[in-house]
């Protein structure tokens, strides 16, 4: 069995914990509970004939006065960057975190989730901004921890990137 550490990275309140809860436990809660430090969950996925045990590090959200410490990033094999589609400014936070990740562990597989896609009325990411993000080399998904949209797909895609066949 292959073990891989995966960091969930993004601003606060973008839905990192909800995405993990949806993927690992198939559940969702509307109640917002701020993550302190880190919570580690595990889930196995099959990539071809190999089983990958993903250790999901759900790390507290980055804020102006509380940066994500690089100690949490050490030993990471992959990252899920999460932004909130109703708050476009959280996309900038993912870029800052991606840079910090690369400075700490080098260029590792990562994907970008623009979450809360179920909130269509509040959605604020323009098509042109999305086109620009999709032009970059990393996969981008519009996701919803509430409906499950693209959640399984995203985690599986990252597993495939971390363990290429």
């Amino acid at each position: 069995m292959i073990q891989k550490k995966v960091c969930m990275l993004g601003g606060f309140g973008v839905g990192k914990t909800s995405l993990v809860a949806r993927f690992v436990h198939s559940r969702f809660s509307d109640q917002y509970l701020s993550t302190m430090g880190v919570k580690v969950d595990r889930k196995g996925v099959d990539v071809g004939d190999r089983h990958v045990n993903m250790m999901l590090w759900d790390i507290y959200g980055e804020e102006a006065n509380r940066k994500v410490a690089t100690s949490y990033l050490r030993g990471t094999s992959g990252a899920i960057l999460v932004a909130d589609g109703t708050r476009p400014e959280t996309l900038e936070t993912t870029q800052i975190l991606l840079q910090r990740l690369q400075d700490t562990v080098g260029d590792i597989p990562s994907i970008l989730l623009i979450n809360k896609h179920d909130l269509t009325d509040q959605w604020a990411v323009t098509d042109s901004a999305l086109d620009a993000l999709q032009a970059a080399s990393r996969p981008v998904y519009l996701s919803s921890a509430k409906t499950g949209e693209h959640v399984e797909t995203a985690f599986h895609t990252l597993a495939e990137l971390m363990v290429p066949s």
């Binding site: 302190m36 430090g37 880190v38 919570k39 580690v40 507290y60 100690s71 949490y72 050490r74």
Partner: peptide
């Protein structure tokens, strides 16, 4: 030296 804080 290394520190991981607030692990749930």
């Amino acid at each position: 030296d290394f520190r991981l804080s607030q692990i749930e």
